[in-house]
Design a protein around this nucleic acid. Structure first.
Lengths: 316, 316
DNA sequence: TAATATTTTGTTACCGATAACACGCAGTTA
DNA sequence: TAACTGCGTGTTATCGGTAACAAAATATTA
């Protein structure tokens, strides 16, 4: 059977209000009682009824997770982000609803996590009436959680430099989004610090396009060059191109990616890449969102997590 | 403001019980009243309070989605499965909790969807006390939803045959799981029907291993062979191997994969593959699970959906 | 010690829905 | 016409919690 507050109350010889307080406002209950109450709760394996709590507090205990990108080309890393998010939310008895472009119902939740946001989404996001957090930097002061993109490419560029590549070229994504700009900045910053000349190419984020670029242009690029890429997709294409043209990768031409989820493992050789801490990022999203829901008045710091350099075979 | 049953009731000059009935047992309410009630509901944009409903019906309106595989190597297709599932569940005011190996809490939900099940999981699954559905065939009569695996490899093999490949080799996964056996069966079946000799190799499901096999063995395999693979991962490796050894793929040696999510797109050339209808599968999982929850006494048919042959450049 | 302040605990009402029962009002039947 | 069906609708109680208030117990003060 299911144990309720009432059951605990009887067993502990107090009113159920006291039990409720022991849980939610423990400072208002004498230690003696509390200890006993918690003992009983434990014995009877008490699990609070989420629906009842939600009803009386006028909450839904639901978070909507928006994926604004086309789901067909969606990056696999959302999966891990969601695992991190869901795990933390479940601890606070929240559950999830997954929303896609096809299905954009607002309301019926306590808050939103927004992923895959682009410039065009600013309009409706600014109208939202519930607390939300975006996964990904943005220029509108919406609270966000993201990898420290700038630091990531700094690490990549620095590493390329430390491996004695004489030229370092940045392969970016042709989008004017903050995360891309930050990645470019990280690269540029280290290049200038090292007294090297930055060189940036930009393509749509598809491996084929990057591969084609390498196939056609590698001949004009001096050996001893490392390509620092803004995504693993681009890096994947670059690596393939280099392999095809020169027969090997790493020594004459190196590649470093960015993301570290799935694609870097599938590449041959595995990509050296900047790994985003997706699970942690998900957890942080949850924390931040819950904070906004429970303390709407407090303003929050955005959250930038440090990525990790993951060595593969695509660099020397 | 939020509209409740009470508000509708007042505006429609009936009791809230009548409104509730109009929603849940429409046959018990006169048409005249119903029409008016629905009109008012629409005007006032009524959204039922999920928590209240859950409380009184002693339900949670939550489904737990279990991913039993290691999340680090999880196939990207779970994402699409979840989208399909979540979308259908949301319509019935259910939301999701994502459970992974790290976090296997039972209870606090109305049912489970189990993915990534392996033989070893039979033990605890058989003890579960709530309705559940597994994504993936199984040998224990747990209700499941899956792609018609046998049909899939039949289609692949048939297609290879129709493209005049003289030899067709099956590259399987070295697991004794029903879905793998079904895939082998589909292949064998068509081979025998065509009077050809089946030849099956099995490897762990990693592209590198398949690639290595091709690199070392392709010389011993006659030209005009098509490799029908049990996964896109394997096909991906096979394609790479063929490309490396012979410089081109499709004509002398063809490759057909199985899954059609993400990896087939990333391959160069894109893989010809058997595409699983992941969104539909997700929807079906939801339907089946809801049916089990709402009518526990009825026994259900398992569900096998037809896959689709998706042509890429890895076959002629 | 009486009066007052401060904890600590209990009581009541309510959140928004639904099941079970009660009731009123046709149309049948005797 | 009285008793009997049924259908359609309203009334009441309830699910499991929590806020707001009331009351009791204890501590502090004069």
């Amino acid at each position: 059977m299911v144990t309720t507050l009432e059951d605990i109350a009887k067993a502990a010889h107090v009113s159920k209000m006291t039990v409720s307080r022991a849980i939610n406002h423990p400072e208002q209950v004498r230690d003696e009682l509390k200890i006993n109450i918690f003992k009983v709760m434990h014995q009877l394996d008490y699990r609070p009824n989420v629906a009842a709590k939600a009803l009386v507090r006028n909450r839904t205990q639901i978070i909507k997770f928006f994926i604004l990108e086309d789901i067909d080309i969606t990056e696999p890393y959302y999966m891990k982000l969601m695992v991190g998010l869901a795990e933390r939310l479940a601890k606070q008895q929240y559950s999830l609803q997954l929303m896609t472009d096809r299905h954009l119902d607002i309301g019926g939740s306590d808050g939103y996590l927004i992923t895959g946001m682009r410039a065009k989404d600013h309009e409706w996001l600014s109208r939202l009436e519930l607390p939300f957090v975006t996964f990904g930097e943005n220029r509108w002061h919406f609270n966000f959680v993201d990898t420290n993109n700038e630091l990531g490419t700094q690490m990549a560029t620095q590493y390329a430099f430390s491996r004695h590549y004489e030229h370092i070229i940045f392969i970016g994504m042709a989008v004017q989004e903050p995360y891309e700009l930050s990645r470019e900045k990280g690269y540029t910053h280290v290049m200038q610090a090292q007294g090297m000349v930055p060189e940036i190419k930009r393509f749509n984020n598809h491996s084929r396009i990057a591969m084609h670029y390498i196939q056609t242009q590698l001949a004009t690029i001096p050996a001893n060059t490392c390509f620092v890429c803004a995504s693993d997709r681009l890096a994947f294409g670059v690596e393939k191109g280099i392999l095809e043209v020169t027969g090997s990768v790493g020594n004459n031409y190196g590649v470093i990616g960015f993301d570290g989820v799935f694609l870097d493992q599938v590449a041959t050789p595995k990509l050296t890449t900047i790994e985003q801490p997706m699970l942690d990022l998900g957890t942080r999203c949850a924390d931040m969102l819950l904070a906004k829901i429970n303390h709407p008045e407090q303003s929050l710091e955005d959250c930038l997590l440090k990525p990790r350099l993951k060595l593969g075979g695509s660099t020397r």
